[in-house]
């Protein structure tokens, strides 16, 4: 049976989604590239979700320089094993590794993929979710970056046999040094792009302090907090939580838009959400055109009242 690579950087939901998706194409081999110790931390989970083999390439150089060393090692591994496809996370790093490998192997690359058929045909959502396309790679080993929340991960325990990979990094891959890496405390909330519930605030929230209303509602539903570009540009909420064309694209089970008008720039980042709820004072706000449930009203009254009612129902 053909081998399928899944490039796994962390034990997280997106990795499990990729491992689940890859099973449809062949036998799954995870590829772990990073500093020494990276594989130890995640190998059990990779086996649990179906990795028959785990290729492990560990070297400090893989984290000390930006993506090029990882791309070099991955390209060499693809050359040796010629997998049926290579799945990578559709994250900043995953897309950049894929881009370099695509050039060095003259291979096709498909990004932000949400579905993959046995023959390698990939489903993507383009133009702000307005068109669904199916694409195929026509040259080389298909490189596919997978978007979070594309499917429900299913465990399928496999052997997870570890195979050491030699790491030889050329000087050409050491041109960009990562001189400082800061992990910002993210608290207890789920990752924005992985959360099954996202509650976002927009210009209508009015200030950074008042974003607590959005945060409290998100916490009540166990969701992540997002913000529209208007809100991040105004400094109400940090830029990294921006949902939209120039921010994150999210596709949760439930998306709550509070005080967001719903400009195309924002809709581009959230309109593939399963259920959309909008609260806005302006009954002409375009967000209502795509909302499954809309409340025309003051978010500072509606959200706290809904929160109280939810607590009552849980009591």
């Amino acid at each position: 049976m053909a081998e399928v690579f899944v490039v796994a950087g962390a034990a997280n939901k997106l990795t499990y989604e990729m491992l689940t998706m890859a099973r449809g194409l062949g036998e799954v081999s995870a590829v772990v590239l990073g500093a020494p110790g990276t594989a130890d931390a995640i190998a059990d989970k990779l086996s649990e979700y179906g990795a028959a083999k785990i290729y492990v390439g560990e070297d400090d150089a893989l984290d000390a320089y930006l993506v090029a060393p990882k791309a070099e090692v991955l390209a060499a591994l693809i050359g040796q094993h010629r997998p049926a496809a290579v799945l990578l996370p559709s994250t900043q790093e995953g897309k950049e590794i894929a881009a370099r490998v695509a050039v060095s192997l003259d291979n096709g690359l498909l990004t932000d993929v949400v579905g993959l058929e046995a023959d390698g045909t990939a489903t993507q959502s383009i133009f702000a979710g307005g068109i669904v396309v199916k694409s195929q790679v026509t040259r080389g080993v298909p490189l596919v970056t997978v978007k979070p929340n594309s499917l429900t991960p299913e465990p399928a325990p496999a052997a997870g046999e570890r195979v050491a990979v030699e790491v030889a990094v050329s000087d050409a891959a050491k041109l960009v040094t990562v001189s400082d890496r800061v992990t910002e405390a993210k608290g207890d909330r789920p990752e924005l792009t992985e959360a099954s519930v996202v509650v976002s605030g927009g210009r209508g929230v009015g200030s950074a302090e008042q974003f607590s209303v959005v945060e409290e509602f998100a916490d009540l539903l166990g969701g992540a907090v997002g913000a529209s570009r208007a809100a991040t540009d105004a400094g109400f909420y940090p830029h990294k939580f921006q949902v939209g064309q120039t921010g994150s694209t999210v596709s949760p089970q439930l998306y709550v838009a509070a005080g967001i008008s719903g400009a195309i720039q924002h809709r581009a980042g959230m309109q593939t959400s399963k259920t959309i709820v909008a609260v806005n004072k302006d009954d002409g706000a375009p967000i209502f055109e795509i909302a499954d449930f809309g409340v025309v009203g003051d978010l500072f009254k509606v959200l706290p009242q809904a929160g109280e009612e939810i607590k009552k129902r849980r009591a």
Partner: peptide
């Protein structure tokens, strides 16, 4: 567009 209501005091309850 799905259901839309206007808050007249009970909008939050309807949302819940």
């Amino acid at each position: 567009a799905g259901q839309r209501i206007t808050d007249e005091g009970e909008g939050g309850v309807a949302l819940a």
